[in-house]
Simulated assay, not measured.
Amino acid sequence: MEWLRKRGIKLEQIAELVMFLQQKYFPELTIEYCMYNIEQVLRKREVQNAILTGIQLDILAEEGKLIPALQEMVENDEGLYGVDEVLALSIVNVYGSIGFTNFGYVDKMKYGVLEQLNDKSDGHIHTFLDDIVGAIAAAASSRIAHRKQAEREAEMAQLKAKADSEA
């Protein structure tokens, strides 16, 4: 979380992305619950590793310290580069295939903070960070979806058990 903050990202901004992805499916969703799920995603070591790797590569690109061919690709966030998305997919993969669709959607829409990171108006390189932030939001959204599905299944099992006992 410290490195996300250093790069200008607030968890509330990521929570807005989670709301964007999930509110249609769960109208009772709150920012607080989104924040909780983001925090749970950020506890995972593989997520932390991806964040640190991506941020370090963005910083090295800002400093001009990458080899020339890679420097140009990262600096310009070239569409065919794709390694930034692959790194982000390691985050969404933690919560299953729904994470991939959530990530693809939020990455394409460039909603909220993702639009700001993508337009590069702050003078920083965010080739990896924009995808990492989108992936964290997608993973938290997936975590919420999995929890809601588990709640529904438990509720159905209780109803079935009650019906069986009454029969």
Rank of each mutant, 00 (worst) to 15 (best):
Q48W: 13
D122H: 04
L4Y: 09
S141G: 13
W3D: 10
E16V: 05
M1S: 14
S142K: 02
A154W: 12
A150I: 11
D58M: 00
C34A: 15
Q13I: 03
S97A: 14
Y105G: 01
M1T: 06
F128S: 00
Q13H: 06
D58L: 02
L66Q: 02
E12T: 10
K24E: 03
A150K: 12
A154S: 15
G104T: 04
K160S: 10
E153A: 15
V86A: 12
V47A: 07
Y25W: 03
L70W: 10
E12S: 10
S97C: 08
K160H: 05
V18Q: 07
L70K: 02
L11R: 03
L117V: 02
E63Y: 05
I125M: 08
L159F: 09
D77C: 12
Y105E: 08
K120L: 10
E78F: 10
I55G: 06
A135V: 06
A140Y: 03
K108L: 12
E16R: 03
K162V: 13
G99L: 07
G96A: 08
A69V: 09
V133C: 07
T127Y: 05
R152P: 03
I51S: 08
D164L: 12
E62W: 09
R43W: 11
Q149T: 09
R7L: 04
Q116A: 15
W3F: 10
R152I: 14
L66Y: 00
T30I: 14
V83R: 06
A154H: 15
G96R: 09
Y81S: 09
I59C: 03
R143A: 14
K24V: 02
A137I: 06
S90M: 09
V74L: 07
D119L: 11
A167C: 00
G79L: 12
K10E: 15
F128G: 07
E63K: 13
E62K: 03
T127W: 02
R7T: 00
K160Y: 13
T101P: 09
L17Q: 03
L159S: 00
F128T: 10
Q13C: 04
C34L: 12
N37R: 13
S97G: 04
A88N: 01
L70Q: 07
A161W: 10
M156S: 14
E32P: 08
S97H: 12
T53M: 09
N37G: 02
E115M: 11
L21M: 06
I38D: 13
A145N: 13
R143P: 01
I98G: 06
F128K: 06
I132W: 12
G134Q: 02
E16W: 06
Q22N: 09
E39Y: 11
M109A: 13
W3A: 13
L11E: 01
I31D: 15
E39M: 12
K65S: 04
E2I: 11
Y95R: 11
F103Y: 12
K148M: 14
N93A: 14
D130H: 08
V18N: 05
R5Y: 08
A88E: 05
K24L: 01
G64Q: 10
F128D: 11
R152V: 13
K10A: 14
E62H: 00
Y111R: 03
Q48Y: 11
M1K: 09
F20L: 00
Y111N: 07
A15G: 02
G134R: 07
V94D: 00
V86T: 08
V106C: 05
G82Q: 02
G123T: 07
V41C: 10
F26T: 11
F103V: 05
I144D: 06
A154D: 15
E85I: 01
